[in-house]
Design a protein around this nucleic acid. Sequence first.
DNA 1: GTCTATAGAAGGATAGAC
DNA 2: GTCTATCCTTCTATAGAC
Lengths: 193, 193
Amino acid sequence: MTGVTQGVRPRGAGRAQLHETALRLFASDGVEGTSLQAIADDMGVTKAAVYYHYRSKDDLVLSVLAPVFTELDAIADRAAAHRSRPARLDEFVTGIVGLIVDNHSRFAVLVGDPYVERLLAAHHDLSGWWRRIVDEIVGAGADPLTQTAMLVFLTGMTAPLIKPPVAGLDAETQRAHLIECGRRILQIRRRPA
Amino acid sequence: MTGVTQGVRPRGAGRAQLHETALRLFASDGVEGTSLQAIADDMGVTKAAVYYHYRSKDDLVLSVLAPVFTELDAIADRAAAHRSRPARLDEFVTGIVGLIVDNHSRFAVLVGDPYVERLLAAHHDLSGWWRRIVDEIVGAGADPLTQTAMLVFLTGMTAPLIKPPVAGLDAETQRAHLIECGRRILQIRRRPA
DNA sequence: GTCTATAGAAGGATAGAC
DNA sequence: GTCTATCCTTCTATAGAC
């Protein structure tokens, strides 16, 4: 899906490739550690070419992250539709793991990067998703242990795919293992109806 | 031992306070997002004063992180001393949670910061601790699910204390909840002998 | 132990040619 | 849509006075 649709490009690849390059560098070096110069160099263009597509670095960062907000909303919607909490939690875990496996870098940058954290604090309309998860999925008045467990789950999902022991597994195995971890943390017995 | 800054430290209160300030800013803004200027400003001194204590930024970062390596080694030692795997895992979980609750910022910066990740890749003598955990605590030939669970646990421990729902709890409650999360992830039934 | 001053490199961002 | 060239700011790091 993300692939090399542009193939070997002598010049002028456009936004899609820029997105892809930026995300890769953000994930490996951190947002603050990735200069627009580095992105331009990686693509074989100049900084000015990057500024043609995005007004600022923050603009680029938010643009790269945007898809994950849409996904998170969709996941939260699907989960919130269930009546019982175990069902909501399981739907949520499954959804998040799917997001991670298909879209790991984006999620890791969103949850883990200090630059992004500050950026979203400014755009507070984008930073309410954690509140929503607690309120609608876990339940607003949930006990602290369950809230803690949800937090550990969400944070815990960010690293696994890039580290040695897990990185080598195929996608379906990763998916199954991560879902199992989520069910353990949140104590979901099995797939509830 | 790397001999980064070590040797003598007969200085005044300057170093301790510098350590503390740097760690706080590293944790909140990321290492790359924290300039030596910002550290100096926060302490009410100049950059040059910081350079009197540390030869470079990397030197400062490694010095700030150093205590956590000592702690991790001690925790791994205590855990590895147990014969049964459940006992090793439980000792490890308890130790890590203790480290987190008492020393959260340092651990979070160590595990989560991209700058630190690159820095440790260079000093590869300091980055072997994850390997050690897998080999000695989980067991070298452990199944991928257990290895994944350990990774999720370690990563999951980095966020909780600073986020709203958990940050407000008292230390003992945090400790208990985090230990419970660890036991769930790693499926440790109870405190084994 | 801390300061002023500054070198030298790198980063974000803009203007205007093609 | 991409380029060259440039501006201004900030960063790491050093030199030398007090």
